[in-house]
Design a protein around this nucleic acid. Structure first.
Length: 238
DNA sequence: TCGATCTTTCCTGGTT
DNA sequence: TAACCAGGAAAGATCG
């Protein structure tokens, strides 16, 4: 059904949100610890914010019931929800002092995933990295996602991708730009820049070589996520 | 206010 | 010849 398996991605929610959902919905604990490319999953600070790494249930091989659910008449709706979720930018906390308070990984129910109240997309997730004042939030919202995050989200979101980008080696993080012009147009739309083209976009991508977000790889139109890029890796549970 | 960062823009030269 | 790659340089926007 899916040509690419998505990565596990986190959901932000408050302690109240979690308790409310847990009281109404059956959560399924993973049978083994979730293997994440990021170790910094922890119980948050004073505002009791959680980050839940999760694997969308339809993709989890151990949950045949959910897989069957994805084939029924609700498929389209749920599929859109999941692909939307896969576009969620995996912005993580980096407070290593709290790593000794891990949160048990859970598989949220479809009700939880469908609730817009509990799902926060890229820009909002960025705002939750640290408590920000109103002015700083406004700035963050204007800035939006970075180019590499935009590319990653396209790769993780087949419904929006339309074969613009394609994985060459999913595990290694190597991907190829299939439709360079459309990729540039989409990025230009994202940044409200009608003058964007692939030449400019590719130059911006090459800047990531210096910072380790991308790595050089042989082949035209081919790029590879580097050590500094996160949120694109598959987990060991899939 | 300022330095850092990210992105855009323009450019030259090389490769496919 | 067109499309793409590589990278220098400069500038603008935003952030802390």
């Amino acid at each position: 059904m899916y040509s690419q398996q998505p990565s596990a991605i986190p959901i932000h929610c408050t302690l109240d949100d979690f308790n409310d959902t847990a009281n109404r919905t059956a959560f399924t604990l993973l049978s083994k610890p979730m293997v994440s490319d990021r170790p910094d999953i922890f119980h948050g600070g004073g505002d009791a914010e959680f980050i839940f790494p999760f694997i969308p249930t339809p993709f989890h091989p151990a949950r045949e019931r959910d897989s069957l659910q994805m084939m029924d008449s609700h498929f389209a709706t749920e599929h859109n929800t999941f692909t939307g979720l896969l576009a969620t930018v995996t912005t993580y906390h980096s407070n290593t002092e709290q790593l000794h308070h891990p949160v048990k990984p859970v598989l949220p129910s479809i009700d939880f995933l469908m609730s817009p109240k509990r799902i926060k997309y890229s820009a909002d997730l960025k705002l939750q990295e640290k408590p920000l004042n109103h002015r700083t939030k406004q700035r963050k919202q204007r800035q939006g996602v970075h180019l590499w995050e935009f590319a990653r989200d396209l790769l993780l979101n087949p419904m929006e991708n339309h074969d613009i980008l394609q994985w060459e080696d999913r595990r290694a993080g190597i991907f190829r730009v299939i439709k360079s012009n459309i990729f540039a147009q989409l990025w230009g739309t994202q940044k409200n820049n009608e003058g964007m083209n692939y030449e400019k976009l590719s130059r911006a991508l090459r800047h990531y070589y210096k910072t380790g977000i991308l790595e050089r790889v042989d082949g035209r139109l081919t790029y590879k996520f580097g050590d500094k890029a996160y949120g694109w890796k598959e987990t060991g549970c899939l």
